[in-house]
């Protein structure tokens, strides 16, 4: 986490995402990420929507009990209607791209996808070693993830900041159909899940 090259890369990512209107944080471990989420204004109501089976997620599942201990109620996403305009949602991303300040979401399940489409504030966890410098690095990953097979990802998105429009008089308005706030957390060592 103190690697200067990495710090440069993260700063670049942060700048690009910020100019697209998104927030970003670095967390040393999952507990740090849980604190960032729990203390975020979007958690005022104390509820967080997560993709189905998120608790079993090899990489991110361990964050749920940590959030629970902070008094957050976890709800697994169901139908799109049940997720619509929920105050806060959480997903895990495959990749973060410094060049554009984007994260790559790659979920086939509709119920998982709607978390990033319909909640008002969307939190995204990305492993720090998945931060790549350029879109070209992402192209290689996209190529791998679309390869035919049982793990083929049929639906992927680069998400770069919140949903936006400038269609009316070119007035920038945040949060049209998608989230109004995007908060990306780069997590250094997800194994060290102790408070």
């Amino acid at each position: 986490m103190d690697d200067p090259t990495y710090t440069d890369l993260f700063t670049h990512f942060q700048q690009r995402l910020s100019s697209a209107g998104g927030e970003s944080h670095r967390a040393a471990h999952l507990a740090g990420a849980a604190t960032i989420i729990a203390e975020h204004p979007a958690l005022m109501a104390g509820e967080l929507v997560v993709p189905p089976h998120f608790g079993q997620h090899q990489q991110w599942g361990a964050i749920l009990p940590l959030l629970g201990r902070k008094g957050i109620t976890i709800r697994e996403a169901g139908s799109p209607a049940s997720v619509a305009d929920a105050p806060a949602g959480l997903s895990g991303a495959e990749l973060a791209i410094a060049e554009t300040g984007s994260v790559l979401l790659a979920q086939n399940m509709l119920e998982a996808r709607v978390v990033s489409m319909l909640t008002l504030t969307h939190f995204v966890l990305v492993s720090e070693d998945k931060l790549v410098p350029m879109l070209d690095d992402a192209a290689v990953i996209l190529q791998q993830l679309t390869r035919a097979g049982s793990d083929q990802r049929h639906y992927m998105s680069f998400v770069t900041g919140p949903s936006r429009t400038a269609d009316i008089e070119r007035t920038l308005t945040i949060g049209v159909q998608g989230p109004k706030t995007l908060c990306v957390i780069l997590v250094a060592d997800e194994e060290e899940a102790k408070p």
């Binding site: 100019s19 697209a20 300040g101 996209l142 679309t146 639906y155 680069f158 949903s163």
Partner: peptide, 9 residues
């Protein structure tokens, strides 16, 4: 710099 969403289906 980039659009908000770039989707690959």
């Amino acid at each position: 710099q980039s659009t908000s969403y770039t989707t690959f289906i």
